[in-house]
């Protein structure tokens, strides 16, 4: 199966605009983790700070564009991995190895399987 690992952390710990000194450290750890995952990793990316986010919301067919992320919460979506794993247990094991600086959460979402 294919899964997305969505990384939620408090982006303020990485400094303004995610350019503080702690950012370099975590990026190095992600690069190492990416090596470790090898072929298990299908894709992924880090995201710029939520200050740069724009949301297109559709309500009752009407679309509006908003400044900011989809939800204002304590922790923000900061990046994601796309991986291939046999099942949820294997994915949980991988999610537990994702580098996190302090508190944070990794949400596991199976990718939609489009059947013909």
């Amino acid at each position: 199966m294919q899964y997305a690992l969505l990384l939620y952390e408090d982006e303020s710990v990485y400094g303004p605009g995610k350019s503080g000194p702690e950012m370099r450290g975590i990026v190095a750890r992600h690069i190492a983790f990416r090596e470790e995952l090898g072929a298990t990793r299908l894709g992924g990316a880090g995201l710029a700070a939520t200050a740069s986010a724009t949301t297109v919301r559709t309500t009752k067919g009407k679309q509006t564009v908003h400044d900011g992320p989809f939800a204002e919460i304590k922790e923000q979506l900061g990046g994601f991995y796309l991986i291939e794993a046999p099942d949820l247990d294997a994915t949980i094991a991988i999610a537990k190895r994702v580098p996190v600086l302090r508190d944070g959460a990794v949400e596991i979402r199976p990718l939609l399987q489009i059947r013909e």
């Binding site: 199966m1 099942d87 247990d89 949980i92």
Partner: peptide, 14 residues
């Protein structure tokens, strides 16, 4: 079904 919970008795590590 959708999250892919395996139909297995988990291994000793977990």
């Amino acid at each position: 079904a959708e999250a892919g919970v395996p139909f297995e008795v988990p291994g000793p590590s977990v």
